[in-house]
Design a protein around this nucleic acid. Structure first.
Lengths: 201, 201, 201, 201
DNA sequence: GATGAATGAGCCTTCATTCAT
DNA sequence: TATGAATGAAGGCTCATTCAT
């Protein structure tokens, strides 16, 4: 019944989203006009509105597409048994992503979403869940570490996990504002904190 | 010759700024219209434009006014000799501020500024310098601590300071998204990290 | 690919210009609001701004469109060999135009442009060149007349041409202020001046 | 009863008018804001509105003040018996005035009034009467000249007078647009036309 | 009278969205 | 489906005018 293959449809959607993301990363959601997206994509207004009902829906779709990204990063530490090694892997994956332009671009849009989350409940939920997942993951790692006696028993898994994620978020901010944060240097600092978590201090 | 006291002028300015800040915290810079500020302040368009040349200048002024706020907070640790005590004082001041509505309000606007910093060079400079100061302050504390043998000698003062500030920033984000972060709980987690910094592990 | 014929675009432009000209003739440039042009044209703000970037550009376009009009009028005398006959033809064409509503309308806008020329360099240049052309044309006619011995040799072609054009301009002014100036009467007066130019006095 | 001497009042009025005229000559009526007049005069809004009820009234007052000026100029030819000499005197006075900055300034405002006359009945009446007077004066001179046999009998006094005034108006326009018109050159051209008027051709 | 901060109607312009082709 | 000209509700800002001091 559909005259166009559904895959073509999805491709077009992707095309629009990519163009929109470029604009959003560059100018922010509210400074970006549909006209900008039209120019960036090379498509027409009608076409874009054929795929997305409104600008807000476009922003939503961007938020959706960003949603899963961090989970992938944080999954980096999932395969290790040693929680300290796991945290190191997560940190390395995370910091490495911040050195690549693609990662920065995504973070730029991400920061807009962080701010948008203050007003838009759907976005807030997405942003929050995008952080709850890593926190839960890390907390679980710490708990396992405590069972094995690698992590100090006074450590509060959930709180510490939250703090680690918070630190990553702050690093993102500083990176986006132009600070150059070398992975090796940051990893070394991270070691200091791991020392605090470790059972043997 | 001036029929109105010069202080009245500054008062009016303050009045407008306060109204604008309320709107900005609630709706963000770009969703806030001058009409909103007019309603919130109870003044007229002409009056507002008599004090601020444009909406952008209003945003700038808000950015200016927020600029010094953190410095005050971070000064909390300046009077102690013990760097660990100093850091605890800073953390307590910071976390305490996050429990008060005034603090949250300020942070809500702050988050908008963090995002705005991606596009506006002046704001970026202000935001960045607002973070450089605390980092320098904390780094200095750590350095003094190393001299006295309280802080572990392998700690990199600047990097560690940056990480601590990053953590605070991340906590702000999570708090703004609705997570309730109790001061005592957060302080306990903070202890874990202090343990990593301490000379005697 | 273009779904609308390119000529439709130009037609729409013309439509807007005509509406604007009506408004300008009636109320002047600065008393005419875009809202007026919207009403007069039956179009929308967005449409008008799709064809003209600003109100100033609309005024410019009107100035452009008026620019060539006089040249056409003054070309009336070009085909005669006899300079006196040529001048008569020019005068008749000019005065005749002043009797028609279309001509008056154009002159009304023209007078606004004359005033606008004091402040706008582009318009001044257009207005000035619109007068330089006729002056050059008439001067040339007089020169040819002197060679043939029809025009008195003491006549200064350029100065006399300028004076003739000046006279026409003054007539326009008086006509616009409501004086009824019959073509025949004016032609008769013109004869008096031609007599001054003529070789045989 | 009046606390301030009436002459002080008139002085202040004059002061405001002079400031307004400067602004109007420079920027035109509609581009000039009351704020501009305030700056130019060094007075306050309230003060200006104490002397003139509105901006329109200010424009009216300028129109009034300009009204008598030309009459003075054209009176230059009144004291001679010889109409040709009279016309020469008028022309010389007129052209001389155009060389002085004060004269040009007045004409700049005058041109705005010429345009304004299209919409404002009061101003039109003033502008028109300001031209009717000289026309009547010159026509009378020509009539007297005909009686004495100095002016050709076929000359139509009124029409010729109107044409002469028209010529002067056109010269004003051209001068205001930046053309430099030397008095001697223009007088020489004027002679040509006088020749057409003269009885002995 | 003089001052100038405050008013608010209204102006120019933008931009998300629609719809005939 | 895709196109892009047209729509029109708002938004930012100006400026003639007022009025408490």
């Amino acid at each position: 019944m559909p005259k166009v293959k559904p895959e073509t449809l999805a491709l077009r959607r992707e095309e629009i989203l990519r163009a929109a993301e470029n604009c959003f990363a560059r100018q922010g959601f509210h400074q970006t006009t549909i006209q900008d997206v039209i120019k960036e994509s090379g498509l027409s207004a009608g076409c874009i509105y054929g795929h997305f009902a409104s600008k807000d829906e476009l922003i939503q779709a961007i938020s959706d597409s960003r949603h899963g990204r961090d989970s992938t990063l944080f999954a980096a530490g999932g395969d290790t048994d040693d929680p300290l090694q796991g945290l190191r892997a997560v940190a390395r994956a995370f910091l490495g992503d911040l050195q690549k332009e693609a990662g920065l671009q995504a973070r730029r849009v991400g920061l807009q979403l962080w701010a948008e989350a203050l007003r838009d409940d759907v976005i807030r939920e997405q942003v929050a869940s995008g952080i709850r997942q890593p926190i839960a993951l890390i907390a679980e790692m710490l708990r396992r570490g405590q069972k094995r006696g690698v992590i100090h028993r006074t450590v509060q898994p959930r709180g510490a996990a939250r703090a680690i994620v918070a630190m990553f978020q702050g690093i993102v901010l500083q990176r986006l504002w132009g600070e150059s944060i070398s992975t090796s240097e940051a990893m070394q600092v991270f070691e200091t904190f791991l020392a605090g978590l470790a059972a043997k201090r």
